[in-house]
Simulated assay, not measured.
Amino acid sequence: MKMTIVTDVHGNVLGAIQGHNLTEKKDGVEATVSFAPGHATHMIEVDDDLTTVDDVDEFQQRLRRHLQKHQQP
């Protein structure tokens, strides 16, 4: 599954958005998700079952693991 992970200037995970599209247009209204300067977005593939994780700590840990894999050379 595609997911966009957002990190701050220190690399801390701030959140995640399912998919890679940060803009949505519907019925003539367009909305865009944007982040403060210094924040980074990482568009990566994650496990499909990540959407079923109810525990916040587990969700954050799994996001960090995927992000670390993505950032390896």
Results as ranks from 00 to 15, higher is better:
1 M>R: 11
2 K>C: 02
2 K>P: 07
3 M>E: 09
3 M>R: 11
3 M>Y: 05
3 M>I: 07
3 M>N: 03
4 T>E: 01
5 I>D: 04
5 I>R: 00
5 I>W: 00
6 V>W: 02
7 T>E: 05
8 D>S: 02
8 D>K: 07
9 V>P: 12
10 H>V: 06
11 G>C: 05
11 G>V: 03
11 G>S: 10
12 N>S: 12
12 N>T: 05
12 N>P: 03
12 N>K: 12
13 V>D: 04
14 L>G: 03
14 L>I: 08
14 L>N: 03
16 A>P: 00
16 A>Q: 07
16 A>D: 10
17 I>D: 00
17 I>Y: 03
17 I>M: 08
18 Q>W: 14
19 G>A: 03
19 G>E: 09
19 G>C: 01
20 H>V: 10
22 L>W: 05
22 L>T: 04
22 L>Q: 02
23 T>Y: 05
23 T>C: 10
23 T>S: 15
24 E>N: 13
26 K>H: 10
26 K>Q: 15
27 D>K: 13
27 D>R: 13
27 D>G: 12
27 D>E: 15
27 D>F: 07
28 G>E: 09
28 G>R: 05
28 G>L: 07
30 E>I: 10
33 V>Y: 07
35 F>T: 02
37 P>G: 06
38 G>S: 05
38 G>C: 04
39 H>G: 06
39 H>R: 15
39 H>S: 07
40 A>P: 02
41 T>K: 08
41 T>P: 00
41 T>W: 06
42 H>A: 02
43 M>H: 15
43 M>Y: 10
45 E>V: 08
47 D>Q: 14
47 D>G: 06
47 D>H: 14
47 D>Y: 11
48 D>A: 15
48 D>G: 15
48 D>E: 15
48 D>Q: 13
50 L>V: 13
51 T>Y: 10
51 T>P: 03
51 T>L: 13
52 T>S: 15
52 T>G: 08
53 V>D: 02
53 V>Q: 02
53 V>G: 01
53 V>M: 02
53 V>Y: 02
55 D>C: 05
56 V>N: 11
57 D>V: 12
59 F>W: 13
59 F>D: 04
61 Q>V: 06
61 Q>G: 06
62 R>P: 03
62 R>S: 04
63 L>T: 00
63 L>C: 08
64 R>I: 03
64 R>K: 11
65 R>H: 09
66 H>A: 11
67 L>T: 00
70 H>M: 05
71 Q>G: 01
71 Q>C: 04
71 Q>R: 08
72 Q>S: 10
72 Q>L: 09
73 P>A: 07
